[in-house]
Each structure stands twice: as structure tokens, then as C-alpha cells.
Design a protein around this nucleic acid. Sequence first.
DNA 1: CGGGATCCTTATGGATACTG
DNA 2: CAGTATCCATAAGGATCCCG
Lengths: 145, 145
Amino acid sequence: MAVNPSKHLEVREKLAQAQKLDPRVEALVNQVIARVADKWTMIILDVLAEHGELRFTQLSKLVAGISQKMLTQTLRAMERDGLVIRTIHPVVPPKVEYRLTDLGLGLGAAFCGVWIWAEQNLNAIDQARKDYDTRAATTRHPNCL
Amino acid sequence: MAVNPSKHLEVREKLAQAQKLDPRVEALVNQVIARVADKWTMIILDVLAEHGELRFTQLSKLVAGISQKMLTQTLRAMERDGLVIRTIHPVVPPKVEYRLTDLGLGLGAAFCGVWIWAEQNLNAIDQARKDYDTRAATTRHPNCL
DNA sequence: CGGGATCCTTATGGATACTG
DNA sequence: CAGTATCCATAAGGATCCCG
């Protein structure tokens, strides 16, 4: 857990590569990130990557706390961005299935590193929060020391 | 750009590995993702990864459209999560510097893939949106055909 | 079943003014 | 300089009802 200066440079280099120093590209990338960096978008992306193809109701169950409104809304946005394909089967009762496009699959793969990081650093974050809160509590009354 | 079925499986496998099928871990990861999947958090993360150590005003300029309120708020949250270190130099005028922790650096590296993806697929997303909007416009009046 | 439309509450976030 | 505090507008999002 020691600070490794070369690690900093390594990461900085990677990120510099990622945007190739072009400010216009950077702005566009920021925009895309902002669009895609949505709680529900990422969770839906993950669920679809896991299960392959799902119906609306299946999704609503697998995504846990999502409301039907947000599910519809997010799926529409993802479809518009070319991340998912919406297939309507003209039967009764209606059957609509969602699956990732190659684009969506690629994004899922790209996010893979973040998921792994999140899993591996859950405890570290939890501990950091506790430490922060403790520090905040003690420094709030300096005169008590 | 042809659909490669093995690609699907590959991604699914990676994502399955990432959460090891434990539902509790999955829920926690979702929570972390939701916390970290914030527009400003990711952009600040990126800027700090690029520049190493920055003062408040420098950050506010580099992050572009951010308000001072959101900058403070996001930096505090990131500090609490153990992603950044806030160093206060007891001088006048005040000087406060922010830099990423190892944890933050790790997250930056994990997000690297997403940045690259975003950059590489900007045009694809743009095109997908245009297509979607065109389709929506034409299918809105089926009787015109 | 898969949503669309509506209402209503809460959260987000910008602008401004003030402070150590 | 680096914030905090406050006000206020808008957007996000949940609950509910309804329809093909």
C-alpha cells in the first residue's frame, strides 16, 4: 500500500493517451461519459451483459430498486445511444426483449475494470468513510482536547 | 463490426468473475458504483490523474462547467471515500491542494478503459442517435408511406 | 405484458452574498 | 484564496392510473 510514484506517472500517461490532448475530443468524451455515467445505465448494462437477452419485467426484477419509469427511460436512452437493441414480438400478450449491441458489449467490457476495482476496494472505501467521519467528529470540538 | 458470439461470452465471463456471484457483494458493488458513477467525480478524477496535485481554483478552471458549490461538494465526498487527499497549508492567503490517493489512482486506472472506449466510439454513438431520431420521425407517421 | 401520461415530492445544482 | 450559507429554479424520480 506504499505510494509508488511511478504508478502515478503510469496512470497519467494512460489517461493522456486516452484523450490525446485534443481539447475538443476531451469535451466530447466528457459529454459521453456524463451521459453514460449513470447509475441505472451501468447496472442495466451489467445485468444485460450477464443474462444476454431479457424482457422488460425480467429486467425490472433483476435491477432491484428501479421504478418502471426509470427503466423505460433508461432503456430508451440506451437504445438511442446504440447500446441496446429492442425487439418487439408481435404477439399477445406483448413480448419485448432487450439485448446489448456490440457497442453496449464494448462498454460493458470497458466498465469491467471499474466493477473489479469496486469489488476489491469496497472495504477500503468503507474504512476511509469511517475514518473521515471519526476525524470530522473529533476535530469538530477542538476545545474539548 | 460483425457480431462475434464468443465476445459476448467473454464479457459475460469477465463480469461474472467481477462479482463472483455473491448477491450481497453485488449489492455493495452497485452501491459503490452508484456513488462513484457521477459526472463530476469522474471528471475531477481524470483532471487530478493528469495534473497530479492542484489547488481549488486551478481545479475549478480545469473542470470547465463546474460550479464552486459542486466542486466543493464533490471533493468532500471524494475525500470521504478516500479517493483524494486534501492538504491545507497554513499560510495567508490560504492554500489548499488536492491530489489522488492510491485508491483514487486505482479508480482512475480502472476508468481508463471507459475513457478510451468513449473516445473511440464517439462517432458510433452520434450516428446511432441520428439513426434513432430519424427512425422515430419516420415511424411516427406510418400512414405517410 | 409493456409501457404512456400524469401528479407530486424530493434532490440537484446554479447564483449570490458573506467570511476567515 | 477557499470556502460556507442561503435562496431559488429546475430536473430527477417515485406512485398511481390507464391503455393496447
